[in-house]
């Protein structure tokens, strides 16, 4: 018999290394002779999109087109350390470092512009759309490209902005459980409808939704990609992927029996991006890399419980595990 059930799984997740461990990101922003800005940062791009969103952040602070940002990462000779691409920390931590580095460069650009424009001070000077100009008299202006050329002539290049960001976390007191082990936290909720076949033990996901708190979406398309990916991974974890560990040895070490969801196994996920800017985040953004997969298994297991009244406590819920649990339930 086929039985339907609904389940939700809600999580909150502290990003970053946490628990008082020094979590430091550094970045450098360099004005090049052609007016472009090179961002040097030791943040590894592994497909999550850090290069894209961090270039966006730099372009936003410098107020220049995205194509004028030269993003240089993954070569430790040419960049300061920004920690690991782990703990869902690059958007928040390294994003903050890049923002600080670009703000530092921006300040230096304006200071140099006031000298070139022969003004009394830098008060009222601003940088927008690649131009530095006086707000009260916009005809007093110089483009970033022209300024770079002047600085090159005066042998004042490269102009370098630096940024370092250390996340604020406090180790938890083991006795009292008090402390502030993580900051910030990311929240999400998954909802799924499953259909359980009580004859075969097969589970079909009929519908799935995810609402993900992101602080501020720097690149909504990429966030959706992360949500889809986290859902697929969480789904595999819930009902397919079983290493079959026995006495320390893996039984299922090939894709023939270690089953990763295929395009036919993953249903369409309805996605909601929830924006609630984090005041300490770069433009309000937070990390979502790991959080997007956490709520899937609880939601699926709750839906199975709703469908057949059996509380499963081990993943993955393979057909044989589910059938065994149903049999035990009938016996009791």
């Amino acid at each position: 018999m086929k039985k339907k059930g609904v389940g939700i799984g809600s999580t909150f997740y502290g990003t970053g290394y946490g628990n008082g461990f020094p979590d430091v990101s550094r970045a450098k922003a360099v004005l090049k002779e052609d007016g472009k800005v090179a961002v040097h940062v030791g943040a590894t791009e592994v497909g999550q999109g850090s290069k894209t969103i961090m270039s966006q952040m730099a372009a936003e602070v410098m107020s220049i087109p995205l194509n004028d940002i030269i993003f240089i990462c993954e070569d430790t000779k040419n960049m300061p350390d920004s920690g690991t691409a782990a703990a869902s920390r690059q958007t928040y931590n390294t994003g903050n470092a890049i923002k600080l580095a670009c703000e530092d460069l921006r300040k230096k650009v304006i200071e140099n512009a006031f000298k070139e424009l022969k003004l009394n001070s830098s008060v009222g000077l601003t940088l927008k759309n690649g131009e530095i100009y006086l707000k009260t008299l916009p005809s007093k202006n110089i483009s970033l490209k022209e300024l770079a050329l002047c600085l090159l002539k005066n042998k004042e290049l490269p102009l370098i902005g630096e940024g370092s960001f250390t996340a604020q976390t406090i180790e938890m007191d083991e006795e009292t459980g008090q402390g502030a082990p993580y900051w910030p936290y990311t929240f999400n909720v998954y909802g799924v409808i499953v259909e359980v076949d009580t004859e075969t033990g097969l589970i079909d996901i009929i519908k799935a939704v995810c609402a993900q708190d992101v602080g501020k979406a720097i690149n909504p398309e990429m966030i959706e990609g992360q949500m889809d990916g986290g859902f697929a991974m969480g789904l595999g974890y819930s009902i397919y992927e079983d290493l079959g560990l026995k006495e320390g040895k893996m039984k299922n070490k090939n894709f023939t029996n270690y089953l990763i969801p295929t395009a036919l196994d993953v249903p369409e996920l309805e996605k909601f991006i929830i924006e609630d800017p984090e005041s300490t985040g770069p433009f309000g953004a937070k990390g979502i890399g790991e959080p997007v997969m956490l709520g899937v298994a609880p939601a699926v297991l709750n839906a199975i419980y709703d469908a057949v009244g059996v509380r499963i406590t081990q993943v993955p819920v393979t057909p044989d595990r589910l059938l065994r649990a149903l049999k035990e339930e009938r016996r009791e």
């Binding site: 959706e224 990609g225 949500m227 889809d228 990916g229 697929a232 894709f255 295929t262 395009a263 993953v266």
Partner: peptide, 12 residues
């Protein structure tokens, strides 16, 4: 369906 992907969840 013969191409496994670990990142995208296939939707995009």
């Amino acid at each position: 369906s013969g191409n496994l992907c670990r990142c995208t969840g296939y939707a995009k």
